[in-house]
């Protein structure tokens, strides 16, 4: 009789394990998934974001559970003020987003996860009755700039223009106010600014290098240390991989572009197609001094259209784009001596 009871108990325990363990696990998994939508991140060649499109209602918290299927990724949404989330392989990270305006928001990877990193983008469609995000034409469109046209100048300084020296000169001169306006800065390339000053009678006694120093000063006063710091951080996180930390166009990923060491890499791992042109070299004076802030904004917002330059319009705010633009000129101008004042 005792044996029979033991056997019965053993059988119940066996059934409990056989059925209970899988059932319990499936239930726990299902319950965990009820806590929020699960978004899986993988390198683009492994599938990218899954799902790629999310939906949300204005004012209703969107709870997202993030996990990586391969390497370290990051999650951020363009155009809203929400902190980036790190996504470690196999771990669950959680974030809650609240949208105040309907629209189409882009979420993207913030970690250089591989050669195709920049392709890791998804969309959050936000529905609601409130006013949608206002669509403001970027400045380059307002000005009708052809951002694909080649821009080069033959007029270049001999040495790196010094904003500090420009400031000292400016203190002795009576410079018309138009040179100090934000609008002038945004719409003129350094070369255009140089030509304009060169034609002024008050600048007749200045050397060509003096004029370049004045231009550097005029570009400097349109920014701030905080602005440059923000631009530097954004550049390091999003641009340096291709354009290089020093802006010389020799970032790690530049190897995959035309002329790079890995330009002949397999299609599967090739990020931009074999015809992609090398990343811009921001230390190239002839190239950079012919580019206005508005032109650079256009290139950042719209991307390079086949050159391999991603479009950042849906991701960066205006303020962030202008911060990056301001930072790009530090590859041409020396702000030393002024930056901490």
């Amino acid at each position: 009789m005792r044996l029979e009871r033991s056997e019965a108990l053993a059988r119940w325990l066996f059934i409990l394990v056989l059925v209970g363990v899988p059932a319990g696990l499936f239930f726990a998994t299902w319950q965990a998934r009820q806590r929020g939508i699960l978004v899986q991140a993988a390198m683009p060649e492994n599938g990218g974001w899954s799902p790629e499109v999310l939906e949300a209602q204005v004012g209703v918290p969107l709870h997202i559970r993030l996990t990586s299927l391969d390497v370290l990724h990051g999650f951020a949404v363009g155009g809203i003020d929400a902190p980036h989330v790190e996504i470690e392989p196999g771990k669950i990270s959680e974030t809650t987003l609240v949208f105040h305006q309907p629209g189409r928001y882009v979420f993207y990877c913030t970690r250089w996860c591989g050669p195709n990193h920049w392709r890791m983008r998804g969309v959050i469609e936000v529905w609601g009755d409130s006013n949608p995000m206002p669509e403001v034409k970027p400045l380059y469109l307002q000005l009708g700039l052809d951002i694909d046209a080649v821009h080069r100048t033959e007029i270049v300084p001999i040495v790196t223009p010094s904003a500090a020296h420009g400031a000292a000169l400016a203190a002795k001169l009576t410079i018309p106010e138009k040179y100090m306006l934000k609008e002038t800065y945004l719409t003129h390339s350094p070369e255009q600014m140089w030509r304009s000053i060169r034609g002024e009678s008050w600048a007749a006694s200045l050397s060509a290098q003096d004029v370049w120093d004045l231009v550097a000063f005029m570009f400097f006063i349109q920014t701030s240390a905080q602005n440059l710091e923000q631009g530097e951080a954004l550049y390091a996180a999003n641009c340096a991989a291709c354009h290089g930390e020093r802006g010389d166009g020799r970032g790690d990923m530049s190897a995959y572009f035309a002329g790079g060491d890995r330009a002949d890499a397999d299609d599967a791992e090739h990020p931009l197609g074999h015809e992609a042109t090398p990343p811009s070299n921001f230390t190239d004076r002839e190239h950079m001094l012919a580019a206005s802030p508005a032109l650079l904004q256009g290139k950042i917002v719209r991307g390079g259209m086949g050159t391999g330059m991603p479009y950042w319009g849906p991701i960066f705010t205006d303020e962030q784009i202008w911060a990056i633009v301001a930072y790009l000129y530090t590859f041409q101008f020396d702000y030393g001596g002024l930056i901490n004042e």
Binding site: F14, V17, L18, V21, P22, L25, F26, T29, T67, S68, L69, D70, P89, G90, K91
Partner: peptide, 21 residues
Amino acid sequence: LAVFILAIVSGSVGTPVGSRN
């Protein structure tokens, strides 16, 4: 056996990241 079943289930429905599975 319970651990074995747990391994079978987690291997099939859990994360594909080996070091976390």
